[in-house]
Amino acid sequence: MIEIRNVSKSYTKGIKSVDGLNLTINNGEIFGFLGPNGAGKTTTIKMITGILNSDEGEILIDGYDIDKQPMEAKKQFGFVPDNPDVFLSLKAIEYLNFLCDIYGVEDRENKVINMAKKFEIYDVLNNKLESFSHGMRQKVVIIGALLHNPNNWILDEPMTGLDPKSSFDLKEMMREHADEGKTVFFSTHVLEVAEKMCDRVGIISKGRLLFVGTIDEAKEQFAKEGSLEKVFLEITQNA
């Protein structure tokens, strides 16, 4: 469970990149964080994960405050950043094993091999991440985020660069994760993704949260009929 209470952030004085954000993501749901480019999605996610300090407000992950109890809070989530270029000089297997050491993962061999086989990168695990394509790096980072079996899974634009099959696999994994009663929070600017798989969505534009609810509620509230795209455009344009 992720609770975001009244959180704001500005990089430059006077311009709020995230403005008074309130959100609660419950256990067992997939929450899609939707918004056009530059809306403040990455900024929000960086605050949730402790990469950025918020100017105001508080963020709780499974009840732990990310500022006040950072170590406990950080153990509760697995994070997939928008840029999967992590430690490119390491081999994939070295990176994953390193993460296992950090999180103290048991039974690491089975976990790594199973997920790597699922993503079809098992055969290349012994190569440097440098030689991986964007999508392959993405897969390694996704595996790394799930090794310690976190209660909360946070992903920033996870579908970017994945081929259709991997994208499908990822969606399945997200569904499974949520069905186990855990939380999935991911950002995207691609509407179809959100429409198909989110239990609830939040729509953000220019740092302000414009809507929270199910896709159907969004459609109901904004346009009596029509595609999500229209709804999306309508919401973000009227802001």
Binding site: N97, R108, E109, V112
Partner: peptide, 17 residues
């Protein structure tokens, strides 16, 4: 991307440190 090592991962790649 360059040459790939064909070596599969082995048990010793998973040692706990």
């Amino acid at each position: 991307t360059g040459s790939y090592s064909k070596r599969k991962v082995e048990k010793k790649d998973f040692v706990k440190g």
